[in-house]
Design a protein around this nucleic acid. Sequence first.
DNA 1: TTGTATTTTCAGTATTTAATGAAAACATAA
DNA 2: TTATGTTTTCATTAAATACTGAAAATACAA
Lengths: 181, 181
Amino acid sequence: MKKISRPTPTAEGLQLDVARDEFVTQWGSIGSAWGINRTMAQIHALLIITSGPLTTDEVMEELKISRGNAHTNLRELVGWGLVRSVIRKGERKEYFEAEKDVWKMFCIIVRERKRREIRPAINVLKDCIDRADGLKSPDAVAFTKQTKALCEFMEMADGVLSKVVRSEQSSIVPWALKFLK
Amino acid sequence: MKKISRPTPTAEGLQLDVARDEFVTQWGSIGSAWGINRTMAQIHALLIITSGPLTTDEVMEELKISRGNAHTNLRELVGWGLVRSVIRKGERKEYFEAEKDVWKMFCIIVRERKRREIRPAINVLKDCIDRADGLKSPDAVAFTKQTKALCEFMEMADGVLSKVVRSEQSSIVPWALKFLK
DNA sequence: TTGTATTTTCAGTATTTAATGAAAACATAA
DNA sequence: TTATGTTTTCATTAAATACTGAAAATACAA
């Protein structure tokens, strides 16, 4: 295994390293507030601020984590579509690089969350509505009314997000924004 | 402690109970996918589909959870503003009821997440930018560029959400929607 | 083939997060 | 005041989640 080569640390270099560490660490805690595994968020952060693609070993080294951990979370990120694997010809190692365009990142995350979380939630709501729909008691009527309201709201949100994300370009939202208040 | 009175279960009543249970349970798992404590989401779900306000004991009974757990999560929900406590005159017990209007719920959640998560994230980014800004190396320039892009995006998102939520009325988003694509 | 580099898996362990339940604190009525 | 109902706290325990590291599987070159 090749040792990662590093330039002799200069004052500037150290300052940058501090900023990068801060970014990676904090992105990790922000991620976990949003229900994302801390390590996954940190790897993502690391790849976002690294110009070239990195190998699993380099990620392990940078974040001081085990191979299994690095491997699993890199795969997860590839699964989300936030990171792609790159194979350099003549080399056997797999490299990983993040999508860096912020708007594209946003679109990917929105699409995945729609698919993984919003859609299932809507299905659950529909299921509950079906079970209670037609029941006559006041309780049942109230229940149906409330779940229907929730369901309609989520479908609306789902639709808005679809449209926002459809164009895949960032100018539309700021533009539409002019019309809001 | 007074036992909760319940009508004799009918076929319809049972069917409703199943639907309610399903809703509460599933809302719990949806919540945890979004970084919200499962019990907190379940209590919220329970209060949303219950017409009258409930006491801590009733919540404990319905969800089969301990007093401490019910207490803590009810307080947390009150802290978010999603649930308010109600005191009935002549009674010593505290009652809890949820905000039921879906649009209001949405506004509360957006405002709180902005405050608790988006704003702090923006501050972290600004801090990282400050540390690296002015450094001349190509790595530093790339780092600054990337973090600035992220920061600007999040500020934009913050602004959009502020406007969406400002009016506190649901008609604006569907209206603005017409302009999207 | 066989050897070597690399990736993947997963049982075991550690860490983090959430829940319990009983005691303490508090509030009100008698 | 004392008695009683109610809320709050918090040390302990339980459950969920994440991580490690080594072994197995895979891929490829010689």
